[in-house]
C-alpha cells in the first residue's frame, strides 16, 4: 500500500487516470477485435511524427518561460523553409534537409524577437505566448498571399498566393519513415523517423548537461538565485525560447514529411495544444521537464488518439464522438497542469 501511495504521489491522479484509460482502451481494442498490430504501428509512427514538436516544449519549460504556447511561430518558420525547398525543386533527403537548413536560421531570428517580447511580460508568458501564436498565424495568412513563389506546386493555378495544402508525395513524403524501416511481425517500425527523434533528444540531453544548459535550469528554477550567481537570466530565457522556436520549425517539417502535406494558413493555429498536452501527460510540469517526459508523453497521447478513434466509432456509430473524447482529454490535461502550476506553492 505504501508503495502504491508513493506511485500515486509521483504520477499524480490525472496521469494515473490517463494511463488507466489507455489500458482500458487497449483491452477494449482486443475485445472488439480491432487489428492491434495496425494500431501499434500507427502509434509508433505518430510518436515519431509529433515527438520533436513536443521536445520543443522542453527548453521553454527549463528556462522558466513555461509551456511554449507560441510554438506556431516556430511552425510557420518551418513551413517557410519547407516551401523554399519545393521552390528550389528539391527532392528526397536533399529537399528535407534543405527545408530544415533554411528554417533553422529563420526560426532563430524570429525566436529572438519573440524571446525579447516574452522577457518583457514575465509572469504571463503562457497567455501572451498563446495570443502571440494566434496573431502570428493570422498575420502569416496575409504573408502566404504575398510571398512571391513561382513553383506551380506551390502557387494557385489562378490568382495570387500559396495553396492551402501542398502535397509532398512527389518530393520527400515519408523519406524519414521509409529510411531503413522494417517489420516486427505485423508492426511496422519507421526507423529513420524514430532515429531522427532520438538524435534530437540526445542533442537536447547533451545541451542540458552543458554549462549553458545548467545555467538555464538555474535561471528557470529560481531567477533570483541565478542573478546572485552572476547568471544573466534574460539571456537564458532568450536562449530557451530560440531553441524552442527552432525545434518547432524542425518539428513541423518532420511532421509534414510523415503526413505527406504542408498545411498552411489557419492550420498551425492549434498545433501547439497537442504538444503541450503530450509533455504534460508525460509527467512534466510548468517548471520542470525531462526528455523522458517527452517520449512517454508523446507515446501515451498519440496512443490514446489512435485507439480512441476506431473504438468509439465501433461503439457509438453515429457522430464524431471520438474526436470529442480526444479534445476533452487533451484540453483537460492542459487545464489540470495549469491549475497545479498555480497551486503548487501553497502545498509546500
Amino acid at each position: 500500500m505504501k508503495k502504491f501511495n508513493k506511485l500515486l504521489n509521483r504520477l499524480g491522479i490525472a496521469r494515473i487516470i490517463i494511463i488507466l484509460f489507455f489500458i482500458a482502451l487497449c483491452i477494449l481494442a482486443v475485445v472488439i477485435k480491432l487489428p492491434i498490430s495496425m494500431l501499434l504501428s500507427e502509434t509508433i509512427m505518430r510518436t515519431g511524427m509529433y515527438g520533436i514538436l513536443v521536445l520543443a516544449m522542453v527548453p521553454g519549460i527549463i528556462s522558466g518561460t513555461g509551456l511554449n504556447f507560441g510554438i506556431p511561430i516556430g511552425i510557420i518558420c518551418g513551413l517557410v523553409g519547407g516551401l523554399y525547398s519545393i521552390e528550389f525543386n528539391l527532392n528526397g533527403f536533399t529537399g528535407f534537409f534543405t527545408a530544415v537548413a533554411i528554417s533553422i536560421p529563420l526560426a532563430a531570428a524570429i525566436g529572438y524577437g519573440y524571446g525579447l517580447l516574452i522577457n518583457k511580460v514575465k509572469g504571463s508568458e503562457m497567455m501572451v505566448g498563446t495570443y502571440m501564436g494566434f496573431s502570428a498565424v493570422s498575420l502569416m495568412c496575409i504573408g502566404w498571399l504575398l510571398i512571391p513563389f513561382n513553383s506551380p506546386a506551390i502557387k494557385w493555378p489562378i490568382g495570387k498566393g500559396v495553396r492551402v495544402t501542398i502535397s509532398l508525395s512527389e518530393r520527400y513524403a515519408k523519406v524519414l519513415n521509409n529510411f531503413m524501416n522494417f517489420k516486427i511481425g505485423e508492426v511496422e517500425i519507421p526507423t529513420g523517423l524514430i532515429l531522427f527523434l532520438f538524435i534530437n533528444c540526445l542533442f537536447m540531453w547533451i545541451f542540458l548537461r552543458s554549462k549553458s544548459g545548467v545555467t538555464m535550469k538555474a535561471a528557470g528554477d529560481n531567477p533570483k538565485f541565478a542573478e546572485a550567481s552572476g547568471i544573466n537570466v534574460d539571456k537564458c530565457r532568450l536562449r530557451g525560447i530560440i531553441l524552442s522556436t527552432v525545434l518547432g520549425a524542425v518539428g513541423i517539417i518532420v511532421y509534414a514529411q510523415s503526413y505527406g502535406f504542408y498545411q498552411l494558413y489557419q492550420s498551425p493555429m492549434m498545433m501547439g495544444f497537442p504538444a503541450v498536452a503530450s509533455i504534460l501527460i508525460g509527467g512534466a510540469s510548468t517548471n520542470d521537464a525531462k526528455i523522458s517526459h517527452v517520449l512517454v508523453g508523446t507515446f501515451l497521447f498519440q496512443g490514446l488518439l489512435v485507439m480512441a478513434l476506431p473504438i468509439t466509432n465501433e461503439i457509438v456509430k453515429e457522430g464524431d464522438l471520438s474526436e470529442i473524447v480526444r479534445i476533452i482529454v487533451s484540453n483537460g490535461i492542459i487545464l489540470y497542469a495549469l491549475t497545479k502550476a498555480g497551486g503548487g506553492e501553497e502545498c509546500e
Binding site: 552543458s210 554549462k211 545548467v214 545555467t215 535550469k217 538555474a218 528554477d221 529560481n222 533570483k224 538565485f225 542573478e227 546572485a228 550567481s229 552572476g230 547568471i231 520542470d288
Partner: peptide, 26 residues
C-alpha cells in the same frame, strides 16, 4: 528565495556558482 535552488540536488547547488563563474566542474 535567493540562496538555493530548492528543487535541485545538493551537489548541483554546491557547484553551480563556480561552474558559472570559474568554468570549474566542466
Amino acid at each position: 528565495g535567493v540562496g538555493l535552488l530548492l528543487d535541485k540536488s545538493m551537489e548541483l547547488n554546491i557547484v553551480i556558482s563556480s561552474m558559472q563563474i570559474k568554468n570549474e566542474y566542466l
